[in-house]
Amino acid sequence: MKTKILIVEDDKIVSFEIQSILNQNGFDSTICESYNCCIKNLDTFKPELILLDIDLSKKYEGIQIGSYLNSKSRIPFIYITGYTDTETLKRIQTTKPVAYLSKPFREIDVIGNIELALYNKKASFDDIGNYEVEEESKYSKPIKRALEYIDTNINQEIKTDELIRVSGWSKFHFIREFGKEVGKTPYQYVLDEKMKLASSKLKNTYQTVKEIAFDIGYTSNSSFTNAFVKHSGISPSSFRKKYCR
């Protein structure tokens, strides 16, 4: 079976050039142009590696995806960038990519970095295999379904009733078991995950607070700010000033 690689790039000339290189070297690939498309394809295409442009339609949108992958997934990713300035490289490093390719790139560089990333991924998975088995047994299947739903839909409003439906349990049983297995209520878990993602965006992107609010499922800037202050004890703007000097 061919190794699946997701190309996240909104420049059609570049994305088709990369896809042609991958096809010629025996990989299975598909192309995405946005954050939402990428997140969707994590479940539908199930890539083993992601090639990720750092800009896309919004400046540094690729770094937002990198932040998400770093916190929510073990899929390795390689940044594609035309930037080599210190500030950009610093932001790239915080999201822990396995490598980065500078434009213009050569076929040998693309394939060499991919092969190294896939080799390191296999070695890493071999090392933590026993740990993953332990993690798999940590949650019951209904709770795992709810947690996977949260991860996939973290950029939308997530209601407890929908988590109950996904789990297949009754409301009382789901809330009781969720608290027992996860250690917090569904509402608190969702809030914590949204705030983690918001914090990462504030640190690693140039998105405005309003853009971040809408990106993680809040309908207004004020409701997001109030939630962030309640959760972190500091406003989003103050958080950014404190950690992004």
Rank of each mutant, 00 (worst) to 15 (best):
residue 230 K to R: 15
residue 194 K to G: 05
residue 103 K to F: 04
residue 35 Y to A: 06
residue 48 E to P: 06
residue 76 P to E: 06
residue 230 K to C: 07
residue 154 I to K: 09
residue 96 K to H: 14
residue 38 C to D: 08
residue 139 Y to P: 08
residue 81 T to K: 05
residue 122 K to L: 11
residue 52 L to T: 01
residue 244 C to P: 10
residue 176 R to P: 01
residue 99 A to E: 09
residue 128 I to Y: 14
residue 32 C to D: 12
residue 100 Y to A: 02
residue 205 T to M: 00
residue 170 S to A: 06
residue 140 S to P: 08
residue 43 D to G: 10
residue 171 K to N: 10
residue 180 K to F: 10
residue 177 E to V: 03
residue 98 V to P: 07
residue 156 Q to C: 12
residue 50 I to K: 01
residue 164 I to W: 03
residue 98 V to R: 13
residue 127 D to M: 15
residue 206 Y to R: 05
residue 55 D to T: 14
residue 241 K to H: 08
residue 171 K to V: 07
residue 169 W to D: 04
residue 212 I to G: 01
residue 192 D to G: 07
residue 183 G to N: 12
residue 158 I to S: 09
residue 215 D to F: 00
residue 20 S to L: 11
residue 234 I to C: 01
residue 59 K to C: 02
residue 22 L to K: 04
residue 186 P to A: 02
residue 91 R to I: 02
residue 237 S to I: 01
residue 122 K to P: 09
residue 1 M to T: 08
residue 97 P to L: 04
residue 138 K to D: 12
residue 61 E to M: 08
residue 205 T to H: 00
residue 239 F to N: 01
residue 10 D to H: 05
residue 23 N to Q: 14
residue 177 E to M: 03
residue 226 N to E: 06
residue 226 N to T: 04
residue 127 D to Y: 15
residue 91 R to W: 01
residue 56 L to T: 05
residue 122 K to T: 14
residue 196 K to T: 02
residue 88 T to Y: 06
residue 187 Y to Q: 15
residue 19 Q to C: 09
residue 40 K to I: 12
residue 12 K to L: 13
residue 223 S to F: 08
residue 3 T to K: 10
residue 219 T to E: 05
residue 135 E to Y: 13
residue 188 Q to T: 14
residue 44 T to H: 10
residue 124 S to Q: 14
residue 31 I to Q: 12
residue 55 D to C: 11
residue 108 I to R: 06
residue 20 S to H: 12
residue 86 T to G: 06
residue 156 Q to V: 09
residue 209 V to W: 00
residue 77 F to D: 00
residue 5 I to M: 03
residue 235 S to T: 05
residue 203 K to I: 12
residue 196 K to C: 02
residue 7 I to H: 06
residue 135 E to K: 15
residue 213 A to E: 00
